[in-house]
């Protein structure tokens, strides 16, 4: 099959960029989207041009490295997958695709489709953890955790930190990412002592990084390769308001 690509090219963070047209001809429907980009890159190299830069590593939807807007949809048209799990059989022969990097003030473009998602790490550093220095741990089965809670924690913990939620959100909000971590840790008994501190610090950091707000468009859940529910955002808001209340009331 043949595809026409319009790919965002930008040599470095401070340079202007633009869409460039490339043809991917004779590609196989069994190829992944990234393998198609590999092929386009091989072609560029043969013509002495600079290949398209894009982040990727595991190529099986778990590391969260890859990510791009494919025809206006984060990670492309297939639900519940990262760009690396998208196979060309999901496109029509002859289709034209626009490929752009994640766009958000907090995710500056470094080159072509590569963006800097360091803000996510800083949100985690602000509070996305349970303080348990090595060696302090009690016996693992000492605390019983209902399966329901542990499953719910896992539902949120599957976040791969890809940034598609931010990219898809009309406001560029990192709410889903942040809420997923708040929900994961807040669901578990181990996470209770730091629950208030955590949500206040993480939300504060999120705002500091210039992400937008959540006004409930729901695009993030749709784009999320792990289909994390926007219910986690509601939960984060509840935790946040309660934590603020407790702090204000000196409780």
């Amino acid at each position: 099959m043949d595809l026409v690509l319009h790919v965002w090219r930008q040599p470095h963070a401070d340079a202007p960029g633009g869409l460039q047209r490339y043809e991917a001809s004779g590609v196989s429907p069994d190829m992944s989207f990234l393998e198609m980009l590999d092929l386009v890159n091989e072609g560029l190299l043969e013509r002495g041009e600079i290949p398209i830069a894009f982040d990727h590593d595991c190529r099986e939807g778990i590391c969260g490295s890859c990510g791009m807007m494919i025809n206006g949809v984060a990670h492309g048209p297939l639900r519940g997958t990262a760009a690396c799990q998208l196979y060309l059989r999901n496109f029509r022969d002859g289709e034209t695709l626009v490929v752009e990097p994640w766009r958000a003030r907090a995710f500056p473009v470094l080159r072509d489709l590569v963006v800097d998602r360091g803000a996510f790490d800083r949100i985690i550093a602000a509070g996305g953890f349970i303080t348990a220095p090595t060696g302090h741990a009690p016996e693992a089965n000492g605390t019983l955790i209902p399966k329901r809670d542990s499953d719910a924690a896992m539902d949120a913990a599957v976040c791969i930190g890809c940034g598609a939620c931010v990219a898809a959100c009309p406001n560029g909000s990192a709410s889903l990412f942040t809420a997923a971590k708040v929900a994961h840790l807040g669901r578990l008994p181990q996470g209770q002592p730091e629950r208030d501190r955590r949500v206040l610090a993480m939300v504060a950091r999120m705002d500091l990084e210039h992400f937008g707000n959540c006004t409930w468009h729901g695009e993030c859940q749709e784009a999320c390769p792990k289909e994390i529910s926007i219910d986690t955002i509601a939960r984060m808001n509840r935790d946040f308001l309660r934590a603020q209340w407790r702090r204000a009331s000196g409780d």
Binding site: A132, A137, P138, A140, L144, K147, M154
Partner: peptide, 22 residues
């Protein structure tokens, strides 16, 4: 043996039985 204790303390959501045990 210690690794599992450490990871659970950090909040790693290992699979559990209905009774709440690992």
């Amino acid at each position: 043996v210690e690794i599992i204790d450490q990871c659970v303390a950090q909040g790693v959501p290992f699979a559990r039985e209905y009774g709440g045990l690992l």
